[in-house]
Design a binder for these strands. Sequence first.
DNA 1: GTTCTAGCAGGCACTTACTT
DNA 2: AAGTAAGTGCCTGCTAGAAC
Length: 347
Amino acid sequence: MPYGETKVYFDGSHYIAIPHTTRPVRPKRYQVEEVIEVIDNDTSSSVADETPSENGLESAVSDDNVLVEEAPADGENTATDSENKPKKARRITRKELFDELYQEAQKKKKHERKKFIFNGMRPYFETDEETILYVNNNMDRKKRNVISRRIRMTRKANLQRFNYFCTFTYDSKLHTEESFRKCLKKTLSNFCSRKGWKYIGVWERSPEKERLHFHGLLYIPDGTMPGFMFEDNTYSFSEHKRQITLQNMYFKERFGRNDFEAIEDQTGLRKAMRYIMKYIEKSGERIVYSKGLPQFFISDIMDEDIICPIGMEEQKLLLFDDFNCWDEGCLMGQVSPEVIAQMRTVS
DNA sequence: GTTCTAGCAGGCACTTACTT
DNA sequence: AAGTAAGTGCCTGCTAGAAC
């Protein structure tokens, strides 16, 4: 056996195996970020500005800063609040400030982004050079994180057979934004543990109405769809045409409008994946995953499984689609029984 | 009895940062 | 781009209550 306990990924059309290697690493030293005092004026990016109402405190990343850091040290300051309204001080780290500015910069044109972040960061550094270095390093950090997310998402999506691309919006009569987010998450989570659903999704705010909705790739096992499906024939003002969407009554009654689009093949899956990826790169929102979505499985690889070595120094192996990995013993318990069953049918 | 929703505690799977 | 550690977000598993 040439390669034992190899990590096997599926890239959508080929199985790629990466042989196990070990590399000792030094313990990590996380840098402790210095806390600085940031002065926001009213016209700047402030997160509070873009939050539409008291119910709209949904930005998980920035909530803590806004709520915790804003309070003045002593009560006596409050008398002058109205006079000093345009300025408020917050105690946050440079990295937190960078993250806020980075997020804000996504709305600007590409060539303006770096300058915008530089201007926002400059007051908190001694020199231009220091600022540029810091901004460049953190731009790289963000870029790496996005790549890391993209790879993780692609691998997870390819290793699972999703059968629907769904969009859920909420009806104001049924939910506030906050309760919609909470309830839908809870519902999907319950369906995952109880009916074997799997999902990968993202929360999105539509550009025109700023209304929150959820886009998700869903794997819904046969016979586990709640309620019943029905066709909804409506006129789309954004598309300027009549469209028929497939909706589910269970979700319609509990949340509001929804759209179930069946994923027939790899092309449909890729299209949906591209959509989710494009959005998280733009918004910086986290991807929402159900549990039990492996990125790879472990298998021993035999000579006859390998088409050819690829990549640097044969660190990667391209495998035949029907390579012999289905010995239960070699899966190391990393893949759920459903995935094993599906992988069998795929390969 | 069944199904669904919700709250909670605790653990672990995931994200991020860092190194190579 | 892979391996790994740290830290934490959120999933699991449980319970309870409501609705049918």
